Simulated assay, not measured.
Amino acid sequence: MTAPSQSLDAPEHVDYTAISDTLYRYAAGLDLGDADLLTSALTEDATVDLGPAMRRIGYDFPPLTPRESVVTTLVGAVGPLDTSHSISNIRTTVDGDTAQAWAYAQAQHYLPGLGSQPDQTRHALMMNRYHAQLVRDGNRWRIRSLTIANAWFDGDPGVLLGAP
Rank of each mutant, 00 (worst) to 15 (best):
T2N: 05
T2R: 06
A3I: 06
A3W: 05
A3P: 10
L8T: 14
L8F: 14
D9I: 15
P11C: 09
P11T: 11
E12N: 14
H13M: 09
V14H: 07
D15K: 13
I19D: 01
S20V: 08
T22M: 05
L23G: 00
Y24F: 13
Y24N: 09
Y24L: 11
Y24M: 13
A28M: 10
A28C: 15
D31N: 13
L32S: 00
G33K: 07
A35H: 05
L37F: 10
L37P: 12
L38S: 07
T39K: 07
A46N: 12
A46L: 03
V48S: 00
P52V: 04
P52G: 08
A53M: 05
A53F: 01
M54R: 15
R56V: 13
I57S: 01
Y59F: 06
Y59V: 00
D60G: 08
P62G: 08
P63C: 09
P63F: 03
P66G: 15
R67E: 04
R67K: 14
R67S: 06
E68L: 12
T72C: 12
G76C: 02
G76Y: 00
A77L: 01
V78P: 02
P80I: 00
D82F: 14
S86N: 14
V94R: 03
D97G: 12
Q100E: 06
A101G: 09
A101F: 05
A101T: 15
Q106P: 01
Y110T: 10
Q117P: 10
P118R: 08
P118N: 08
D119H: 12
D119P: 11
T121E: 14
T121N: 08
T121G: 11
R122H: 07
H123T: 14
A124I: 05
M127V: 15
N128M: 06
R129D: 02
Y130D: 04
A132Q: 02
Q133P: 14
L134S: 04
R136S: 07
R136G: 06
D137Q: 10
R140N: 15
I143G: 00
T147A: 13
I148H: 01
N150M: 05
W152S: 09
D154V: 14
G155S: 12
D156S: 06
G158W: 03
G158R: 12
V159T: 15
G162N: 05
G162L: 00
A163M: 03
A163I: 05
A163N: 13
